[in-house]
């Protein structure tokens, strides 16, 4: 019985949380836009969320592309099909690894920072202080961070893809001696702009919304104490990662299934 009670409590809590998070996001992003005020805020957050995540994304992309090149080559060469290395690297990156790994890195790099920052703003009464200055913290603090996350992540994923494919090219062509022309032309023959690249971007957009949303909500509702903020930061990374991996399966099933 007590197990059922606990389960029921958990379900109610979860549904409540989703409801609160939806209300928070709706209040933050629905309303008359004020470009004069919000544009500089957006730029600032694009810097914090996007530019500062660029280095880790590019380096990770390069290494993952290189590993794909190496692993793919050793498998394909047994079948004499090393010319299929190009599409293998490109499709793995564009369809799966680009959006997913970017989202996971983004959750760890930018998501946790967003949670901690907003949690600390709550703890140091900056959010209350905004409210008392008749400035809505949802519009002022949450909204620009949300848009910055949603804009940045797909762009970061595209960079990840490009750099990763280049990494695969370096290992496959420059190092292992796959034919240069075949690498690109076989890739071009099997990669479609619409089905592979755009579907990857759509995936990335969905992940961006979910990860940024979780990060902001966890920060906004964090208990304003040191253990509270540290717990919220951990939850952001854990929940975002799980959400990304789960959604990835669903999206893949819809898009490529």
């Amino acid at each position: 019985m007590s197990v059922l009670h606990a389960l029921g409590r958990q379900v109610i809590k979860t549904v409540q949380g989703i409801g609160q998070a939806t209300i928070m996001l709706a209040q933050a992003i629905i309303g008359k836009p004020q470009p004069r005020k919000s544009f500089p805020l957006l730029i600032r957050q694009l810097y914090v969320v996007g530019v500062q995540s660029m280095l880790i994304i590019i380096i990770s992309g390069l290494f993952i592309g290189m590993v794909l090149g190496l692993q793919g080559y050793t498998i394909l060469v047994d079948f004499g099909a090393e010319q299929a290395l190009g599409p293998m690297v490109a499709l793995s990156l564009l369809r799966e690894l680009g959006p997913v790994v970017t989202a996971l890195l983004f959750a760890g790099r930018a998501g946790s920072a967003l949670t901690a920052e907003i949690g600390l703003m709550r703890a140091t009464e900056q959010l209350s202080s905004l409210e008392m200055m008749a400035v809505d913290p949802l519009r002022r603090v949450v909204a620009p961070r949300f848009w910055a996350g949603v804009i940045s992540m797909p762009l970061l994923a595209l960079m990840f893809n490009a750099v990763g494919i280049y990494g695969g090219f370096m290992v496959g062509v420059e190092w292992l001696g796959v034919d240069d022309g075949a690498f690109w032309s076989v890739m071009q023959a099997s990669v479609s702009w619409q089905d592979d690249i755009m579907n990857g971007v759509i995936k990335s957009l969905v992940f961006a919304v979910v990860v940024t949303w979780i990060a902001l909500f966890k920060g906004y509702t964090a208990t304003p104490t040191s253990p509270g903020i540290s717990a919220a930061t951990t939850q952001t990374v854990v929940y975002s990662s799980l959400a990304v991996l789960g959604l990835d399966f669903i999206l893949t099933a819809i898009m490529f299934g």
Partner: peptide
């Protein structure tokens, strides 16, 4: 950088 990535994907990777 993002635009460069898109151009690279469009011109070099995808079947344009």
């Amino acid at each position: 950088a993002a635009i460069a990535a898109v151009l690279f994907l469009a011109l070099q990777v995808a079947n344009t």
